[in-house]
């Protein structure tokens, strides 16, 4: 199986008044039709990695890569226009808070209809039928009601499902989900993960799942990349997380309280070594 996405030596640098911030410093990985998790603490460069692949890096930042290849397309030198077409069509992204990515003054149903119509020539009633089906496919129980609601009128979990429904119109081959469930309750979180999981298995999509929760990622993904200070410190199979080598990965696993674990008072903390960031 050939890789869907190949990233080699990806770098993102922000040039600010107080100096250059190297947010991503030489990240390389391959992605097939699988669930790949990227974990790390806040500021470790997870989001910027995802955004660079999407082509959504802020304009004052500089992105370089030796290779950034999506299904045979060289993303490093295609036009902004081609990039945009790709983004709407074959690569999609879900962000942490659906409130920021949905249009607040348009009902959810209308937003989905508009994006369907942006993709293909299709009548209004046909499009709204499709939108309803889409809402149903992300396990919204009462799609007709949600269709007529505004984003602020739905809960976080519902908004996130609507967001996923919208992403799926184009039937993307690569989905980048940046902390898609971090704002949700645990029970809702699992529902959303289940939907994503289905998509990967049924549609053969590639999924990059960005999260700060190592435990959650390891239970959901096939493979995990651990980032620290803009670099990958360790790549491993999710099932082999217990055999993680890097002290950072081990520290992250260790410092979380666990239900039913033996008493650990005080909790072990992470002793950051400067050489990890080298």
């Amino acid at each position: 199986m050939s890789a869907l996405l190949t990233v080699e030596d990806l770098r993102v640098a922000f040039h600010t008044r107080t100096g250059t911030v190297d947010a991503v410093r030489g990240v390389s990985f391959e992605l097939g039709r699988e669930r790949l998790g990227i974990v790390g603490e806040s500021g470790s460069g997870k989001s910027q990695t995802g955004r660079a692949i999407m082509g959504l890096t802020p304009p004052h930042a500089e992105v370089t890569a030796r290779k950034l290849d999506f299904d045979g397309i060289d993303l490093t030198n295609i036009s902004a226009r081609a990039r945009r077409d790709l983004r709407g069509d074959r690569i999609a992204m879900i962000l942490q808070d659906p409130k920021y990515s949905l249009d607040p003054v348009m009902t959810i149903g209308r937003q989905i209809v508009e994006s369907i119509q942006a993709h293909e020539k299709i009548g209004k009633s046909e499009a709204s039928k499709r939108a309803l089906a889409m809402l149903e496919s992300v396990q919204i129980r009462d799609p007709a009601r949600v269709y007529d609601l505004y984003p602020h009128e739905v809960s976080g979990g519902m908004g996130q499902r609507a967001m996923i429904a919208m992403m799926l119109i184009a039937n993307p081959q690569l989905l980048i989900a940046d902390e898609p469930t971090s704002a949700l309750d645990v029970t809702v979180q699992l529902d959303v993960l289940r939907i994503l999981d289905q998509l990967v298995t049924e549609r053969g999509m590639g999924l990059i799942f960005i999260s700060h929760d190592l435990r959650l990622v390891s239970s959901f993904c096939d493979r995990v990349i651990v980032m620290y200070a803009g670099r990958i410190v360790e790549q491993l199979k999710a099932s082999e997380l217990n055999q993680a080598q890097h002290p950072y990965t081990r520290g992250l696993l260790d410092c979380m309280p666990r239900l039913g674990a033996a008493d650990r008072h005080p909790l072990p903390t992470l002793d950051r070594k400067p050489e990890w960031a080298l």
């Binding site: 929760d213 008072h265 005080p266 903390t269 992470l270």
Partner: peptide, 15 residues
């Protein structure tokens, strides 16, 4: 907070 920082703050609270 991040998990590692959470551990530090929880320890502080216990202390």
């Amino acid at each position: 907070l991040d998990a590692s920082v959470q551990a530090e703050v929880l320890n502080l609270l216990e202390t």
